[in-house]
Design a protein around this nucleic acid. Sequence first.
DNA 1: TTGTAGGCGTTATCAA
DNA 2: TTGATAACGCCTACAA
Lengths: 338, 338
Amino acid sequence: MSTMQEVAKKAGVSKATVSRVLSGKGYVSEATKEQVFKAIEEAGYRPNLLARNLATNKSECIGLVVTNTLYHGSYFSEILSQAAKKLEDNGRQLILVDGKHSAREEREAIQFLLDLRCDAVIIYPRFLTIDEMDSIIEQHKTPIMVVNRKLRKHQSHCVFCDHKGSSFQATKYLIERGHRDIAFITGAIDSPTAIERLAGYKEALNQYGIGVNEALIAQGKWTPASGVSAVESLLANKNKISAILASNDEMAVGAMKKLNDLGVSIPGEISIIGFDNIPTAAYLSPALTSIKDPVSDMISEVINRLISMLDGGYLSKENVFTSDLLARNSVIDGPYKG
Amino acid sequence: MSTMQEVAKKAGVSKATVSRVLSGKGYVSEATKEQVFKAIEEAGYRPNLLARNLATNKSECIGLVVTNTLYHGSYFSEILSQAAKKLEDNGRQLILVDGKHSAREEREAIQFLLDLRCDAVIIYPRFLTIDEMDSIIEQHKTPIMVVNRKLRKHQSHCVFCDHKGSSFQATKYLIERGHRDIAFITGAIDSPTAIERLAGYKEALNQYGIGVNEALIAQGKWTPASGVSAVESLLANKNKISAILASNDEMAVGAMKKLNDLGVSIPGEISIIGFDNIPTAAYLSPALTSIKDPVSDMISEVINRLISMLDGGYLSKENVFTSDLLARNSVIDGPYKG
DNA sequence: TTGTAGGCGTTATCAA
DNA sequence: TTGATAACGCCTACAA
């Protein structure tokens, strides 16, 4: 790869001049400017970003960390397409790196992005704790934003959503339509979101005096296949079930398939609710009710904040949009007629 | 951010020694090693990758370019999760950057990755032509791999799949089951894959003496929503239709939904086939037949080649796995009974 | 076993 | 309007 030095020699000027031409800063005569461009062309020169970023300590790009266990579903596509769209308008590059399967690896991914001198990093955490993230944010000058978690200290650095509340609402919705035997399929049990959704379900049952029957709770792993297994284990116990609340749409789809295969008619006999309201899922079946998770809104909000922090004009209010996001979290009417 | 220099001072040694401790290369006494580690700890030191990569001219990371118009679907998730999984085992970071909406932007994305000194780059192209890619590959020493296109010159740098052939097979499959009025929903018409699939459909019709009826061809855009519109326009012309071949699963799902809404019973009356065989789609409905597109296999193969090129042991055979991929491209039996 | 010094490709500060 | 030259933070002979 040719360097700036070579271009300089070819154009008969110094490195400094080439640099000025490239950056557009400082005075350069039209004549030499032209010569430099010609030399650049001839040499097939391309600037080395490593060197540039090392010298300037910035990079015009924004990093995103997501665990690859999330890569499988449409939920993830939603996150990414939203982020890409927003950033594109802003003229910055989005760099995605893999958070893998542990807090350590998630931290390394963040560090990697930081060491690459990304202007900012967004993290959709899976393993890091609130405290760890609060502390990471403190340790770095680079803006770090967290999606889908409520931080303790740095609330303007996060955007989240009330999963427990939504789950409570969904359960309540079923109860009010006369359901008493409501099964629940959890997400991967080490996921905070999964835990919150389970908690909301339990709280609603208790509040309505129904009580939690552990036999009606099956563990899933967010995937369609795990939804299938969940239904299998649920039915193995010969439980009476009139509705299923699945912790996401993908599992709901799996559950539905299994019931279909077993010849259980849907809708009517069993009502199914999933979360996330992913685009394709909306086309799946009118028998599936879904609750919208405001990912797109969250990502969009996070990037807005980031941009205003980086390009100036940031109002350091805390928690500006949080309540807004919560409000948007609503139950969509399903087909079940109690 | 503290630098190596500071760590050196704190430990009472030189930068070089710190560097040796970090890299594990060269001799360092246990005693000083310990001191250095302590100093690193105290300083909260983290190496600056920009500087390191600039000095060594490598980065332990592999870039992937994908157009963000692909970000919406499960097909994309499949690509990414496969890539992440493979690379993880190899201990390298995967960096995804956005190819956006034009050949120029796709080229810029590649350049960006190259300037970042990625060890290699993988491109799932959407706008670049074969010749452009062949020429890009020639211009750079860094290994560049192309997924889903057959290059003219550098065939060991690409992995592809016979979309035309698969589409031909799918159409043939329908014809052999007695269908004569087969509608076709295209992908976005500027996509090579879409064009190939359309060509396969036409060729099959012609070969079986059925002839192409342009009124039975509707333009889609790969999305479920465009599948819905396609069916609308298809039915608007009061065409007789007994089967629909959609250029991907997402559109097939949309088409199915629309037919459902209209009360057309499926399966039986109309047989639908989509492409790609995305995981969730498999759960959608037994009424949907799908043809497997070997994305995972392609990605996996590309990364295998890359790794052996980078870590040594690369056999420079041309086209080693191509035919294998073609063979895997098979029609899955659907529900339609003649 | 450790330190010195030069280099990686830019940017940025001064003089000229 | 231009050219030296010193950073940027790290690696790596070559010496010691």
